[in-house]
Design a protein around this nucleic acid. Structure first.
Lengths: 305, 305
DNA sequence: ACAAAACGATTGGCTTAATCGATGGCACCG
DNA sequence: CGGTGCCATCGATTAAGCCAATCGTTTTGT
């Protein structure tokens, strides 16, 4: 009943919305300005809807309906290219560009081992990396600016699939000549009595460490928040307190010779204190099957200490 | 980089998948068989993917990849028509066909009042009705076979938006000359001692009644499950036990002169025993704004006793 | 304030691509 | 062994999309 808009016209529409300029949008679509102008007009006529404020001809201003149509157009183009991507992924699994997001408490310690392993396993994979906090990564994932995330689970996002890859237990890091060093392994109760140094807010590791020690999140407006695990280790070495480090960071060389001593944590039986590393991707991604087959390689890179 | 498939070709693909026959699919698309055949072949060539098992020429058999592409194609066509629908909905709100699903414990008691009210408020709305259990309605909603549901909340479905419309308190229905009739209103404890008659499994009202009385779901393999509220009332009248009825059903005439006596339920202060009626629609529906403006009319029809 | 430049809409001519009707090749049925 | 149903192929036709050039406004520069 209703004629479907052509993908071409929708491309014109989103390009115009992105660039706010007919000429530049036309260039981006590799067509001439007249073509793009006619395309927008044709779209308005076919949909019987006014998309642009067509008063005095100046910079294009979108109507409210126009803005909503832009969003729908983006979704439609995404669904359309998902068809093509599905075919491409089935033809050549794990080739071509893949935009991977990693959290800062994994990236620096795993990538030196992971990248060569991936290059060996999937030579035709072109990996683009972005390191950021979980919140921003998930935002970019859902916005389609990233394809895959490597982070700490649970992520618990809508329309997102996750895959557990490895457990990463916490170990306690203490300054040399700390009184708790007499004990071969530390209980949670003992840790609770110490000044626990943490990463700054936004790092998921911060919350995980707090919950591991059963401490309230808002506990103590500590000005001791570190910006990276490296600086955190330096603060421990300086005697400011103790901290919890993921084993991955330790095997990844976060200590770097700092005068810090590690002690395992005396976990309750059957329950290990630590975090779960995993992958996350859009549930509708055409490349879900590819991502799943990526997991063993990553798990091996994590295990290889 | 990857050329997008044309909507036309995707239509051919899904039609072929639905009908399993080139000629019939072509007819459904109002093109000739040669056009559809060429379209499918062109699609396979453009995507560089084999969609059909092209062995001995007989009935079309889809490859696994082909089946997945059909699903993607459906999604893409849906997203594409969502663009057109958004424009159409903005142009003429609450006109055209609307496929509404209603649960059986609402439909018979509300529709006689609701339909005239809707017809008065939105004369150009063409309402298609389907009455079924919650599970099947939600399935059809997410499958795109229904646009809107009227049911008891919470539905708690992914990708689904809901809107509270009205509270529908429960009243107790007892046989005449029942010993509990001495009391002007009944406590939950008193109800718990009686034989509670319920609808058969699958009706959400059954679970709501059970949880209202704080009874376990699997409690008692009762062969007393009724198939509708009407038969439930007859069973109460026959002295088999008592039951809870939503007030909407009572004002809707479920008693129909049956020898049954109603008593309000002595609710804990501030908390009313009952169910919440509401609307549900796909979160991505282009007509979400329309559905929201439908709510007041429905609420009024419920309130008008 | 005036001229120049920038911007988007319009027009006419062209090329590409989709569709049709007819035909060919292949299995399966009677 | 011919008949029938079904899908692929071929050439002609038509419609749609695109470009280059131009026009009418608006904005900018001095």
């Amino acid at each position: 009943m209703a004629p479907l808009p052509s993908p071409q016209q929708l491309r014109y529409l989103v390009a115009l919305a992105d660039l706010g300029h007919f000429g530049r949008a036309a260039t981006a679509c590799t067509v001439t300005q007249s073509t793009l102008s006619a395309g927008i007009i044709a779209l308005e006529r076919q949909l019987d809807a006014s998309i642009l404020e067509r008063g005095p001809a100046k910079r294009p201003v979108f109507t409210p309906l126009g803005l909503e149509l832009v969003g729908r157009a983006r979704a439609a183009l995404g669904a359309l290219s998902a068809v093509a991507e599905t075919a491409a992924a089935a033809r050549d699994p794990l080739t071509g560009p893949l935009r991977l997001g990693i959290i800062p408490t994994i990236g620096p310690f795993l990538l030196p081992r992971l990248m060569p392993a991936l290059r060996r396993a999937f030579p035709r994979l072109r990996l683009w990396l972005r390191e950021d906090l979980t919140d921003r990564l998930t935002e970019d994932l859902q916005g389609g600016r990233l394809d895959l995330l490597l982070l700490a689970l649970p992520a618990n996002l809508p329309d997102t699939e996750t895959l557990r890859i490895a457990e990463d237990p916490f170990v306690a890091a203490l300054p040399q000549e700390h009184r708790l060093l007499e004990q071969p392994q530390l209980s949670l109760a003992a840790l609770g009595g110490e000044r626990l140094l943490l990463l700054e807010d936004g790092h998921c590791l911060r919350d995980q460490a707090l919950s591991a020690c059963a401490l309230p999140g808002a506990g103590g407006g500590d000005a001791f928040a570190a910006t990276s695990l490296h600086t955190l280790v330096q603060m421990v070495a300086g005697g400011l307190g103790i901290t919890l480090l993921p084993r991955l960071a330790v095997t990844g060389g976060v200590l770097a010779g700092a005068p810090v001593v590690l002690r395992p944590i005396d976990s309750p039986p059957g329950m290990v204190m630590g975090r779960t590393l995993g992958l996350a991707w859009r549930g509708r991604s055409p490349r879900a099957a590819e991502f799943r087959s990526l997991a063993p390689v990553i798990a091996e890179a994590i295990a290889a200490a």
